[in-house]
Simulated scan of single mutants.
Amino acid sequence: MLILIAEDNEDNLEILTRRLKRKGHDLICARDGQEALDMACDALPDIILMDISMPILSGIEATQQIRKHPPLQETPIIALTAHAMASDREKCLSAGCTEFATKPIDFKALLGIIERLTKEPSTDHTASRQTL
């Protein structure tokens, strides 16, 4: 799975990169919102981890621009932010983020979100079959 990490803090980027690589993910990294937008449009990642407070374009602005690109309209975007108020969550979701995670990142919870958002729909329809 190809993950775009958009993060301007080098320590956070290194931690996320190291841990996600250990889990076998392919990564591309952007250090500002404009770079995130450009990389997303070029690489079409499977999921995007978007820091909300970044230079050039904020994560909110980058997300809004990414959502205008048809191949990325359904790509999961997880907002990463130190701002944990309900209004911050709503602002991120309204901008087009799929999910919201607060910093410091709970890596186990983040992996759960990534798995949930990228899991293929089940093709096993046995649960919906009726017994006649």
Rank of each mutant, 00 (worst) to 15 (best):
residue 122 S to F: 07
residue 54 M to T: 09
residue 4 L to R: 06
residue 119 K to L: 14
residue 81 T to P: 02
residue 64 Q to P: 03
residue 112 G to K: 14
residue 107 F to C: 01
residue 8 D to F: 00
residue 66 I to L: 12
residue 17 T to A: 12
residue 63 T to V: 08
residue 6 A to K: 00
residue 22 R to A: 11
residue 1 M to D: 14
residue 56 I to T: 12
residue 86 A to S: 10
residue 15 I to L: 11
residue 7 E to H: 03
residue 9 N to A: 10
residue 62 A to C: 07
residue 117 L to P: 11
residue 98 T to S: 06
residue 66 I to V: 15
residue 100 F to E: 04
residue 101 A to W: 02
residue 118 T to N: 08
residue 23 K to D: 13
residue 23 K to C: 01
residue 89 R to L: 13
residue 63 T to M: 01
residue 94 S to V: 11
residue 114 I to R: 01
residue 129 R to I: 04
residue 60 I to S: 03
residue 57 L to I: 00
residue 11 D to K: 09
residue 97 C to Y: 07
residue 70 P to S: 11
residue 123 T to G: 10
residue 65 Q to F: 11
residue 69 H to D: 08
residue 16 L to G: 05
residue 44 L to Y: 14
residue 94 S to T: 04
residue 4 L to M: 05
residue 43 A to Y: 15
residue 25 H to W: 04
residue 31 R to V: 15
residue 99 E to V: 01
residue 24 G to M: 10
residue 112 G to Q: 09
residue 120 E to S: 14
residue 94 S to F: 15
residue 124 D to V: 03
residue 62 A to F: 00
residue 42 D to E: 12
residue 19 R to T: 04
residue 97 C to E: 12
residue 54 M to C: 09
residue 22 R to C: 13
residue 12 N to W: 04
residue 25 H to T: 04
residue 102 T to C: 12
residue 2 L to V: 02
residue 20 L to S: 05
residue 64 Q to F: 13
residue 82 A to D: 04
residue 42 D to S: 08
residue 22 R to E: 11
residue 39 M to K: 00
residue 127 A to N: 11
residue 124 D to M: 07
residue 129 R to H: 08
residue 104 P to R: 07
residue 81 T to L: 07
residue 95 A to C: 08
residue 46 D to S: 02
residue 6 A to D: 00
residue 58 S to Y: 03
residue 28 I to E: 10
residue 90 E to F: 02
residue 115 E to T: 15
residue 121 P to I: 06
residue 27 L to C: 15
residue 35 E to R: 02
residue 116 R to H: 13
residue 39 M to N: 06
residue 1 M to S: 11
residue 105 I to M: 01
residue 50 M to H: 00
residue 125 H to G: 14
residue 88 D to M: 11
residue 42 D to F: 06
residue 52 I to H: 05
residue 22 R to L: 02
residue 120 E to F: 06
residue 33 G to F: 01
residue 117 L to D: 14
residue 14 E to G: 09
residue 37 L to R: 06
residue 29 C to L: 14
residue 132 L to Q: 05
residue 70 P to H: 06
residue 67 R to F: 09
residue 7 E to C: 03
residue 130 Q to H: 15
residue 19 R to V: 05
residue 95 A to Q: 05
residue 115 E to S: 15
residue 86 A to R: 00
residue 19 R to C: 03
residue 40 A to R: 15
residue 130 Q to N: 09
residue 71 P to F: 00
residue 128 S to A: 14
residue 110 L to Q: 01
residue 79 A to T: 04
residue 97 C to T: 12
residue 53 S to H: 09
residue 2 L to D: 14
residue 77 I to F: 04
residue 96 G to W: 14
residue 61 E to Q: 06
residue 69 H to N: 07
residue 3 I to N: 08
residue 13 L to M: 15
residue 15 I to N: 11
residue 76 P to N: 00
residue 85 M to R: 14
residue 102 T to D: 08
residue 89 R to I: 15
residue 16 L to N: 01
residue 4 L to N: 04
residue 112 G to D: 03
residue 24 G to P: 05
residue 83 H to S: 12
residue 58 S to R: 07
residue 33 G to K: 10
residue 9 N to Y: 13
residue 3 I to P: 08
residue 18 R to V: 08
residue 129 R to K: 09
residue 30 A to L: 04
residue 22 R to H: 13
residue 11 D to T: 09
residue 48 I to A: 01
residue 118 T to H: 07
residue 18 R to T: 04
residue 76 P to T: 02
residue 9 N to K: 07
residue 59 G to P: 07
residue 19 R to S: 01
residue 132 L to C: 05
